[in-house]
Design a protein around this nucleic acid. Structure first.
Length: 288
DNA sequence: GTCCAGGAGTGAT
DNA sequence: ATCACTCATGGA
């Protein structure tokens, strides 16, 4: 299918999802909900192979192709810093990911790094998810709350550290319907954030990640150590400033699509200056 | 051995 | 409200 202005590299490797693997020929293999996918990009032509029947409909939803990305980027393009990030991460879309997996993954992200988060998510999936295969690649679905609760002993062996209890308590809240993610997704952003923060192990940052990366609430601005550094450096002359102040500043400064500003800044400052990824690799992965 | 990683809970002030 | 401390794990 033809999709304009979508970069698989920036979209799948900017850190919003932990479930995609770049293959040797720079296509991507991943499991999303119940299905396995392989996506190949040649410029603006995307070849999607999947166990899912309607891949075009899936892609429209998952990559949020209904949004007007150019208009969003125009609105957040406030100065030369963000302008540079927008230009360098061309084609980065914020995904609409499944809510439970997103919540669980970001609970595991606390005081953790991306390779280790990926390892933990993969560990859980291998042990408690269902196997899916496509074109010789295989992976596992992310375990449901009930699958996790039926196998707490196995969860305890997944090396989740202090986050293990948080994950199990969150799964209990979901199963007991004390938290209903579908309902929460329909609330206003502020109410949504408040509800998510009732979950043990979910503070403001993780609530914002779920709101942004699952519910498409672009007014959310998650503040992690990297975005904190970036904002402090670019807009506060490295002066002392709290995470709350950073968040309020960014929401006011970038406006209703500040979540996109957050992701472009994060991606630009992390992914475009990576160790181990040469610019050549980047270009290959971009499908140039 | 030390420091850091897409933080959050707890308790003291 | 804001601080300091702690939490388990793996990599540099």
């Amino acid at each position: 299918m033809e999709i304009n202005n979508l970069s698989l590299y920036y979209t799948l490797e900017c850190g919003q999802t932990f479930r995609w693997r770049r293959t040797s020929d720079c296509s991507y293999f991943g499991i999303v909900e119940e299905n396995a996918f392989i996506i190949r990009q040649h410029g603006n032509i995307f070849e999607i192979t999947s166990t899912e029947s309607d891949v075009e409909e899936w892609a429209r939803r998952y990559f949020a192709l209904d949004i007007d990305l150019n208009n969003i980027l125009l609105e957040i393009d406030r100065d030369e810093h963000i302008h540079k990030a927008i230009k360098s991460c061309r084609g980065l879309h914020i995904l609409r990911q499944e809510a439970w997996e997103t919540l669980a993954s970001y609970i595991l992200s606390a005081n953790n790094n991306i390779p280790n988060i990926k390892r933990m998510v993969e560990n859980l999936s291998q042990r408690l998810g269902e196997r899916r295969e496509i074109e010789g690649y295989s992976g596992f679905t992310f375990p449901s709350p009930s699958a996790i609760l039926k196998n707490k002993d196995i969860v305890n062996k997944c090396r989740l550290g202090f986050r293990c209890d948080y994950l199990i308590k969150a799964a209990e809240m979901i199963r007991e319907e004390r938290i209903e993610l579908v309902k929460i997704s329909r609330l206003s952003y502020e109410e949504c954030r408040e509800e998510l923060m009732k979950i043990m192990g979910v503070g403001g940052k993780i609530a914002d990640c779920v709101a942004l990366f699952s519910f498409g609430m672009y007014e959310a601005f998650p503040v992690d150590v990297w975005i904190r550094r970036i904002i402090r450096n670019l807009y506060f002359s490295n002066n002392k400033v709290s995470n709350r102040e950073i968040r309020h500043f960014a929401m006011r400064y970038f406006g209703r699509y500040c979540g996109y500003a957050q992701e472009y800044l994060y991606c630009h400052y992390r992914l475009n200056k990576p160790e181990g990824i040469t610019s050549q690799t980047v270009e290959q992965a971009q499908g140039i």
